[in-house]
Design a protein around this nucleic acid. Structure first.
Length: 997
DNA sequence: CTCCTCACG
DNA sequence: GACGTACGTGAGGAGT
């Protein structure tokens, strides 16, 4: 850094600002003012940041206490773990957690400091106070003038010649409880502690400090301590002569061995380090003119209109010419200190986030979305401008460009679609629309049979390790945003190469949050819609069918265009979707329910789960035997053999040749041979259809599970790694594929044998934790049904309660059939009940089903109200939402076809319920890894099955893991939503998934 | 590639 | 008055 300052010396004015004290002061001041000043339009809490900014601006411009700073440092506590914690584990143990809506503001405070062109000062091991003490000591030695800005009395020990403290005013002038600003010199210290600054530590050692949990001496407060120190000169002399103290209590408190040790420890805790190894030298604290454009870009992003205007005037620039800094349009702030989900609850009076229209567009220029949409279409994609990077020097240039931009879109190319088995072939980057490159790394020449020997690498590529070593710092840089379309894939691949990509944004998930129900969110589709551009297809580059070459052997020029284009498109999409999230108030949904899932799921997928090959192989044999026996009997009864797997052939036999009654047709007019049809025949005594049903069941278990699952065991890890799709469903649920681990059999005995093959690692257990009746509980909350709420509050059998209400029968000794019917009705309600559907489900006449529904609505009128109002909403607005603000669009609701409309109405009734359950388990998952780690547990989350989480934990951690899992899952809606019903989680540990479930 | 069927929540 | 419906998924096998 070039110094434009005079060296620190007489005439220098050094401001040392205690960041933590400043932040908390700003926060507590902010909550006293009108709430409208405390939130950005997307509900990001920014009140404390605003006051922090105002105050900092004031310091920089006007100084304080009649002095203008030449040097200024904002000094923070880096982590909770200081050397004092090692001295005394209970140090600051009583500190309460910061308020929920302050947590997201901590990182923003650092951003404020940077925006002012300063470096936030923070170091491991040392607390802010130690760094302040060290700077103050050094400055004092050089004859400079020091002003410590803090309200913390611990810093009073530093006051002395040339060193004063300044405690800024708290509260708004004139309001009750407001405090005047004050300047603290030696006289004020003596006034407070009764001793001069150099004896303050001695007094604190005796008096202790309840806020920092410093023990001190028993029964001695500041008054007595000061008196004793003044009498004996200092702490050491006092302790040496303590046996001569007349008062017995006081003497004991100063002479008992334990007490003396505690006092000496207290002194060590209170005494500030004055020679900490400073990472930023004193000389570098010189105050510079900030970059006005950067500062304003930040202030714009925060929506601080008044401060923006003031700064613009100060520096003579036009604020409206400067776009908000994209890194803070939702990116910053929403993560807690440890990366966990953190947010604030919206005031109960407000509509859920996501469905309200923007009330303030002060921050986003009103036309930003329109501008960006127009830009996306207008600036054509020109593949000829892409660069193929083949030298480390050019790679470095691109990295520099990304650092300058503060963001980079990325895209990895691999040998296979499976991120757990593939090898990296190349990486593409984009730093601005049209500014993209491809870095080929592992392309192979086509003439060798062995794709994976190093021998046939295409020449001229940067060696893989060289390129990764350069990309790693960029991809892991906390100040550079990495953008991708479907980042989970890139994240997983790169994590296998030792790179942990963060922070991230994902255009696919942004589209999903904004446009669920409006089509799919594939890159090709989004490129078409937003850019009017047909993206290159994978097949056109890598071939398909018998012409399949694979990406590694594809023509390098085509590969580069394909890969760079994908990064370019991802970046262009991000430029449109990011402001759309803000304008449409979906930032909170994206940032609390979507984006954090990327890393969470990537970790789960990478862990995988152990599936026993031998067990499945044995089952496959057993199933085959039973199937062969059934097959012989079936052919005997049919009088001919045919393909049992063919519904067409089976239908011909059953309803053609055998002429059985009860034939139904499928959608396309073919005979239906579905289980319900065969079941009806079987119940009527038809052994033939019973055998078909049995055979079908075994066939399903054998082909889909017993035979297919072993093929998914990863050769390297020995485990099965599913892939979770985040943007596949219309409700917010995940989906699982290759293999689908969300449909492993459980409902009958034969199927559960498959489940037993899912086992824990040696020395571990599997733990299954599932929400009990979560959708019905959400229905009770959303539709506000008193009987249901009461039943859940009292932990009653909900289906029996329903039956009792409907049929006026006591719960005690209720016939199972009665309960079964109520259960079917409860589920039917969630699905948007129809008499036909219920009749089908219960195999009862439609009239009877109609009567049930009528009766149900009489007993629970709130449910009908909910269904009616949901229908009304979806008809009028074409959308519905969950209590967490996730929105679903139903463009088909205006179809000319009545049955189509009815279908969308049912889906709209179901979506807020199924979707809220999906939101809740997402919230639990996002917090889970961190919660387990904080509890000191090494348990790992492996699988999600919509209302169930499966963990793997060391045997001796089973109980503790269950406790944490249950707590996190049951508390998942808070603080965003307070449910009117409790959530209940059942959890169990066992050696395999069947027994754990 | 579509249809049917069936595994799950 | 007739029409087709329970909500949300993914996979295997047959048949085109």
């Amino acid at each position: 850094m070039t110094l434009t300052h005079k060296p620190v010396g007489p005439g220098s004015h050094i401001f040392l600002v205690d960041g933590s004290s400043f932040v908390f002061r700003a926060y507590f001041q902010s909550i006293r003012q009108d709430a409208k000043y405390n939130y950005r339009s997307d509900r990001l809490p920014t009140g404390a940041v605003r006051l922090f900014c105002t105050k900092l601006l004031q310091f920089v411009r006007e100084g304080a206490a009649g002095v203008k700073p030449t040097h200024l440092a904002i000094i923070f506590d880096k982590s909770e773990h200081s050397f004092r914690k090692d001295l005394y584990p209970d140090y600051k143990a009583h500190r309460t957690e910061p308020p929920d809506d302050l947590i997201p503001q901590f990182p923003l405070m650092r951003a404020v400091v940077r925006a002012f062109g300063l470096t936030p000062i923070e170091q491991d091991v040392y607390e802010a106070d130690d760094l302040i003490a060290t700077y103050a000591t050094q400055a004092q030695a050089k004859g400079a003038d020091v002003l410590i800005v803090s309200a913390d009395k611990d810093l009073m020990q530093l006051v002395g010649p040339g060193v004063r403290m300044y405690d800024p005013a708290s509260g708004t002038a004139g309001t009750k409880g407001a405090r005047e600003e004050r300047l603290i010199g030696e006289a004020e210290v003596i006034d407070y502690f009764g001793v001069p600054p150099d004896k303050v530590v001695d007094v604190q050692a005796l008096a202790g400090d309840s806020t920092d949990n410093v023990p001190g001496a028993k029964g001695i407060g500041v008054k007595t301590a000061a008196q004793l120190i003044n009498e004996y000169g200092d702490l050491e002399k006092l302790l040496a002569q303590a046996s001569g103290i007349k008062q017995p209590k006081r003497r004991e408190a100063l002479t008992e061995p334990d007490a003396v040790a505690r006092i000496l420890l207290s002194k060590k805790l209170c005494e500030l380090v004055r020679d900490a190894p400073l990472q930023t030298p004193l000389e570098e604290l010189g105050l510079h003119q900030p970059d006005a454009a950067k500062l304003i870009a930040f202030l714009q992003a925060m929506e601080f209109t008044t401060i923006t205007r003031r700064v613009a005037e100060m520096y003579g620039v036009q604020a409206q010419d400067i776009e908000p800094d994209p890194r803070f349009l939702g990116v910053a702030g929403w993560r807690g200190r440890n990366g966990e989900l953190s947010e604030i609850a919206p005031p109960a009076s407000e509509a859920p986030r996501g469905i309200e229209k923007p009330t303030s567009d002060a921050l986003i220029p009103a036309n930003l979305v329109a501008t960006r949409l127009a830009e996306a279409k207008a600036v054509k994609i020109d593949r000829s401008t892409y660069e193929t990077v083949v030298s480390a020097e050019r790679l470095d240039d691109w990295i520099t460009e990304a650092v300058g931009a503060g963001l980079v879109a990325i895209n990895v190319e691999t040998t296979l679609p499976d991120p757990m088995r593939c090898e990296l072939i190349g990486v593409s980057l984009a730093t601005a629309p049209g500014r993209a490159c491809y870095i080929p790394l592992q392309h192979r020449s086509g003439d060798s049979a062995d794709l994976f020997s190093g021998a046939n690498l295409v020449e001229g590529q940067i060696p893989l390790d060289v390129a990764l070593a350069r990309l790693k710092p960029l991809f892991e840089d906390a100040s550079i945003l990495k953008i991708a379309h479907n980042m989970k894939h890139d994240l997983l691949v790169l994590s296998r190469y030792g790179i942990d990509v963060a922070p991230i944004d994902d255009a696919m998930l942004m589209s999903y949050a904004l446009d669920s129900g409006r089509g799919d969110h594939r890159l090709e589709e989004l490129a078409r819609n937003y850019c009017g551009h047909e993206a290159l297809t994978f097949a056109s580059v890598a071939g398909a069918g018998r012409n399949f070459l694979g990406f590694a052997r594809a023509a390098l020029t085509a590969a580069a265009e394909y890969a760079a284009e994908r990064a370019d498109i991802s970046l262009r999409l991000w430029r449109v979707l990011k402001p759309r999230l803000l304008a449409e108030r979906m930032t909170a949904v994206y940032e609390t329910l979507e984006r954090p899932m990327v890393a969470t799921l990537a970790r789960m997928e990478r862990r995988g789960v152990t599936v026993e090959r031998a067990t499945l192989s044995r089952l496959s044999g057993e199933f085959a035997q039973d199937m062969a026996r059934l097959e012989a009997e079936i052919f005997e009864l049919a009088g001919e053999s045919f393909n049992l797997s063919s519904p067409k052939q089976l239908g011909d036999i059953l309803f053609g040749k055998m002429g059985l009654p009860g034939a139904k047709k499928t959608a396309t007019g073919a005979w239906s041979t579905s289980a319900s049809v065969l079941e009806d025949l079987a119940v009527a005594g038809n052994d033939f259809s019973r055998r078909i049903l049995d055979w079908r069941q075994l066939s399903k278990l054998k082909s889909t599970y017993a035979d297919a699952l072993p093929g998914y065991i990863n050769a390297e890890t020995g485990r099965v790694h599913t892939s979770y799709a985040l943007a596949a469903t219309t409700t917010g649920r995940l989906s699982s594929s290759e293999p689908n681990l969300q449909n492993i059999p459980v409902r009958n005995e034969a199927g559960r044998k498959i489940r037993k093959a899912f086992v824990s690692a040696p020395g571990h257990v599997l733990i299954s934790a599932d929400y009990s009746q979560i959708e019905l509980r959400l229905l009770a909350h959303i539709a506000d049904i008193p009987q249901l709420r009461r039943a859940f509050a009292e932990n009653l059998d909900i289906h029996a309660m329903t039956a009792s209400e409907m049929f006026n029968v006591p719960i005690k000794d209720m016939p199972p059939e009665t309960r079964r019917r109520a259960k079917a009705i409860n589920f039917g309600i969630i699905y948007g009940i129809s008499a036909f559907g219920l009749a089908n489900q219960l195999s009862i006449p439609r009239e009877e089903a109609s009567a049930y529904i009528k009766r149900y609505f009489e007993r629970f009128p709130g449910i009908r109200d909910y269904m009616d109002s949901t229908r009304k909403t979806v008809r009028e607005k074409g959308e519905v939402s969950t209590i967490f603000g996730r929105i679903y669009h139903f463009p088909g609701i205006s179809s000319a076809n009545a049955s189509d409309r009815a279908f969308y109405e049912r889906a709209a009734i179901n979506a807020p319920i199924q979707g809220a359950a999906a939101d809740i388990i997402r919230r639990a998952m996002i917090r889970m890894d961190d919660a387990l780690a904080r509890a000191g547990l090494s348990a790992q989350m492996l699988l999600q099955v919509h209302d169930e989480l499966v963990f793997e934990a060391p045997n001796d951690e089973a109980e503790a893991t269950i406790e944490v899992a249950r707590r996190v899952m049951e508390q998942a809606p808070a603080p965003a939503v307070h449910l009117a019903v409790p959530l209940k989680v059942d959890a169990r540990a066992a050696a395999n998934w069947d027994e754990a479930h």
